[in-house]
Amino acid sequence: MRKRFMPAVLLLVMIVAFAAVMAGCSSGPDYKIDVTKELYFQKEKASPFEIKVTENGKAVTGLSVSVELSMSNMDHGTVKAKFAEGKGGTYSADVKVPMNGKYEAVFNFEKGGKKTEKVISIEVAKPEGVAKVNGKWITNEDVTFYKLINRLQLEINREAAKKNYSGAQLDEELAYLDSQEKLAEDKNQLLTQIIRLRSMAMLAEEKGHKAEAAEVDAAVEKARGQYAQFPSAQALIKQYGEEKFWTVEKQQYKLIVLAQMVQKDLVDQAKKENPKAGDQEVYYQAQKKYEDLLVSQINSLKVEIL
Rank of each mutant, 00 (worst) to 15 (best):
R2H: 13
K3L: 11
R4C: 04
P7M: 07
L11Q: 04
L12C: 09
L12V: 10
F18Y: 07
F18C: 02
F18W: 05
C25A: 13
G28W: 03
V35R: 00
F41L: 11
E44D: 14
A46M: 09
F49T: 04
F49M: 07
E50L: 12
I51D: 02
T54S: 10
T54G: 04
E55L: 12
N56E: 11
K58G: 08
L63F: 10
S64W: 08
V67H: 00
L69M: 08
L69N: 02
S70C: 11
D75Y: 14
K80C: 06
K80W: 10
A81Q: 06
A81P: 03
K82H: 12
K87L: 10
G89K: 01
T90F: 14
D94A: 15
D94Y: 14
V97M: 02
V97K: 02
M99C: 11
N100W: 11
G101A: 08
Y103N: 00
N108Q: 13
N108V: 15
E110I: 05
K118H: 10
K118F: 05
I120Y: 04
E123S: 12
V124L: 04
A125L: 09
P127R: 05
E128F: 14
G129Y: 01
A131W: 03
N134G: 08
G135A: 12
G135Y: 13
W137D: 01
T139R: 07
N140H: 11
E141C: 05
I149A: 04
N150R: 05
R151G: 02
L152T: 00
Q153I: 09
E155Y: 01
I156T: 04
I156C: 03
A161D: 00
N164K: 13
G167P: 03
G167M: 09
A168D: 04
A168M: 05
D171L: 06
L177H: 02
E185Q: 07
Q189R: 10
Q189Y: 12
I195G: 01
L197R: 08
S199C: 13
M200S: 03
A201D: 00
L203R: 07
E205A: 10
E205Y: 06
E205D: 07
G208V: 13
H209S: 08
H209M: 10
A211Q: 02
V216H: 03
A219S: 11
E221D: 07
A223P: 01
R224G: 13
G225D: 02
Q226E: 05
Q226M: 10
F230N: 03
A235E: 06
I237A: 03
G241L: 08
E243K: 08
K244D: 01
W246R: 06
K250Q: 12
Q252C: 11
A259Q: 04
M261V: 09
M261E: 01
Q263M: 15
K264N: 14
V267C: 04
D268F: 13
A270H: 00
K271N: 09
N274D: 05
N274A: 15
P275G: 03
K276A: 15
D279H: 09
E281G: 11
E281F: 14
E281Y: 15
Q285Y: 07
K288I: 07
L294I: 09
V295K: 09
S296T: 15
N299V: 06
K302G: 06
K302M: 10
